[in-house]
């Protein structure tokens, strides 16, 4: 098994962030992603940075996990900074050599957008680092509950998510196993002409699809044999409950949002 099999990179813990109701985390992160765009000056960026870093330290998730999650986007963050350095022609010219003209506005904008992007990734990563996929499923089901009134299949969606999460590790192992089995028969996925490498995908996907759909067939039959009839009247093993700490976090976030708008207007 490789590192990719650590689904969602959940890091077990007992911190305040871990213990928050998953609905609270999803709601706050959802609104954070929107309000982060309100920041437009040093004090307002200071507020969103303080909130994001505060959440990170409170979660007690080891820094190395967070940095590992950021590995794929460092390039994007640096590229964004460089792009704005070249494209933005505002402020005063501070570097002029050959065709390279850098303005102070480019540095400021590049830095601001890169910082905003970094904060977005940091905060959204905290959701999956401190919440199990099953908790996220439960939270989504609860949050979509009002849609049942318009006959939206909320229970079915939650069940689909649970079944998928159950099968992901199994199918990952299966994919690796078939990939290795085909490699041992001489199929080469990594080298050779592109055409051959793409053709090599077919003998990998055929057994994978056949095996996956066979599993689905068996599960569907087992569910029907046990009388599964949808979500009507079903009770739950895990019940979500909003605690005092959730309300406090909502109030804190409301203060952050208010601070953000005040500093934007007067900062």
């Amino acid at each position: 098994m490789n590192n990719a099999l650590i689904i969602g990179q959940y890091v077990p813990g007992n911190s305040l962030v871990h213990r928050l109701d998953p609905r609270t985390k999803i709601t706050i992160i959802f609104f954070f992603v929107i309000v982060v765009f309100v920041a437009n000056n040093v004090p307002s960026y200071g507020i969103v940075t303080a909130f994001a870093l505060g959440a990170m330290f409170t979660s007690r998730v080891p820094i190395r996990y967070i940095l590992k999650g950021l590995t794929p986007v460092w390039f994007l963050i640096i590229f964004t900074f460089i792009l704005h350095l070249f494209v933005t022609k505002e402020g005063t010219l501070f570097f002029d050599f050959f065709i390279f003209e850098f303005y102070t506005g480019g540095v400021i904008q590049g830095f601001a957008i890169s910082l905003r992007f970094f904060l977005l990734i940091l905060v959204t990563s905290l959701l999956t680092l401190t919440t199990t996929p099953i908790e996220i499923t439960d939270a989504i089901e609860e949050m979509l509950d009002p849609l049942k009134k318009v006959r939206f299949p909320v229970h079915e969606l939650a069940l689909m998510m649970s079944i998928s999460l159950r099968f992901i590790p199994t199918l990952m192992q299966e994919t690796e196993k078939i990939s290795k089995a085909q490699s041992s028969r001489g199929v080469d996925f990594r080298t050779g002409p592109i055409k051959e490498r793409i053709k090599a995908v077919v003998p990998l996907l055929v057994p994978l699809f056949v095996s996956a759909f066979k599993r689905a067939e068996e599960l569907a039959m087992a569910m029907e044999a046990r009388g599964y009839q949808g979500g009507e009247g079903r009770s739950k093993l895990r019940a979500l409950k909003v605690e005092k700490r959730d309300i406090l976090i909502y109030l804190l976030f409301a203060a952050v949002v208010a601070g953000l708008f005040i500093t934007r207007s007067y900062g």
Partner: peptide, 17 residues
Amino acid sequence: LVVNSVLAALYVAVSAV
């Protein structure tokens, strides 16, 4: 429902592996 759930899992598995 089940076939679609397994298809989604397969999508994730292939993406990751």
